[in-house]
Simulated assay, not measured.
Amino acid sequence: MNRRSFINKSVLTASASLLPLSFWNSLDSEEFTIEELTGKANTKFYGNGYLVRKEVNEAFIKMQAAAKKENINIQIVSAYRGYKRQKQIFNAKFTRFTHQGLSEIEAINKIIEYSTIPGTSRHHWGTDIDIIDANATHPKNVLLPKNYELEGVYYKMKMWLNEHSEKFGFYIVYTNNPNRKGFYPEPWHFSYRKIALPMLKAYQKIDIHKIITNDTNLKGRNFLSTAFIDRYKNDNIFDINPALLQ
Rank of each mutant, 00 (worst) to 15 (best):
S5Q: 11
T13S: 14
S15E: 13
S17R: 13
P20L: 08
S22M: 15
S22N: 15
F23K: 07
F23Y: 06
N25I: 14
E30P: 02
E31C: 07
E31S: 10
I34K: 02
I34Y: 00
E35A: 15
L37E: 02
T38W: 11
G39M: 04
K40M: 14
K44W: 07
L51Y: 02
K54N: 01
V56N: 00
F60C: 02
K69L: 15
I72N: 03
N73S: 14
N73H: 13
N73V: 09
V77N: 11
G82P: 02
F94N: 01
F97G: 04
T98E: 08
G101I: 07
S103Q: 12
I108M: 01
I108L: 06
K110M: 10
Y114W: 14
T116R: 11
S121I: 01
H124M: 07
D128N: 06
I131K: 02
I132F: 02
I132V: 08
N135F: 10
P139N: 03
K146R: 15
Y148A: 10
Y148L: 10
E149C: 09
L150R: 13
E151F: 11
Y154G: 05
Y155F: 12
M157T: 04
L161E: 04
H164Q: 09
S165Y: 04
E166W: 11
F170L: 12
V173Q: 11
T175D: 07
N176H: 14
N177L: 06
N179A: 13
P185D: 11
Y192K: 15
R193Y: 07
M199R: 12
K201V: 07
I206S: 04
I208R: 03
K210G: 06
I211G: 00
I212T: 01
I212G: 00
D215N: 09
T216G: 09
N217H: 13
N217K: 12
K219Q: 09
T226F: 00
F228D: 03
F228P: 02
R231E: 05
D235K: 04
I240V: 11
A243M: 13
L245F: 09
